[in-house]
Design a protein around this nucleic acid. Structure first.
Lengths: 137, 137
DNA sequence: CTTGACTCTGTACCATGGTACGGACTTTAG
DNA sequence: CTAAAGTCCGTACCATGGTACAGAGTCAAG
């Protein structure tokens, strides 16, 4: 037992893979921490917080590139961060809209399947096939 | 002018990249068509339909692996296809739900930003930082 | 006939977000 | 003290869905 925060302890604490933490370091999202004990990474609370920041931002749907920006902006420039968040909100909204129309289409097709008496022709497959198409030229 | 359906004509017709069509062939989603004229692929209407099927299914949110399954099942086994579609519908639904809660969180944060008088502390950044955390083992 | 556009094959590369492994070293539990 | 478990670094590999060559051959318009 000890308060030493080695990479696997941090990984366990934050429910991440050890390799993932090293990957974030390689990617420049976190600095390499001091390595006092025979070259083993010793994570200060600040770095652990930063990793947790990354994790939460990822859960919010930000990409690692975007998170890099967020981290660079730090806790200044609230407006810039707000801007990034607004762009993100827009992309999330259009993803939702796309998925909803997708859901409608798929839902209708499944209903047609359920009421389909002819098991040898599937309404889904038929909907995917072109009606008829002029190919020439 | 001509009725010959070379790869670039098909690509243009379906608004796909030539390389994408060749990629589908490599991946086994379509057979290599006959190559009568000096080894040039000559696409029969059937294959063009199949490519269009792939394209539409992709627009419906199916992955290429899933599309491969759909194509293997052909136009028989309506129930099996219905099953795949239902699974897909569920994953779409949970994606929508996830994105919606994401949107709510982000939306609230942006509103906090707008009404934030202290430009040097960003509510978004603060929400991502841990309150306080016991690190020691 | 020439020249540009098209096609062929095969292989390498792109982004994204990691995961795995080899070989060496260190720490820790028993 | 020994053996297992953890760590190091560097590099290779994974899935996904393509995209981009290079180098050679072919077709079509003028």
């Amino acid at each position: 037992m000890g308060k030493s925060s080695t990479i696997s302890k941090v990984a366990k604490l934050l429910n991440l893979n050890v390799e993932t933490i090293r990957y974030y370091e390689r990617r420049g999202l976190i600095d390499q921490p001091e390595k006092p004990l025979a070259g083993y990474r010793e994570y200060p609370a600040q770095t652990i917080q930063r990793i947790q920041f990354i994790k939460r931002a990822k859960e919010l749907g930000f990409t690692l590139d975007e998170i890099e920006n967020l981290l660079r902006l730090g806790d200044t420039h609230c407006e810039d961060i707000q801007g990034i968040a607004e762009i993100k909100l827009n992309t999330i909204q259009s993803k939702i809209t796309d998925l909803e129309s997708l859901r409608t289409v798929l839902d209708n097709l499944i209903i047609q399947c359920r009421t389909n008496p002819d098991r040898t022709h599937c309404p889904i497959v038929e909907s995917l096939l072109p009606e008829s198409q002029d190919i020439s030229n």
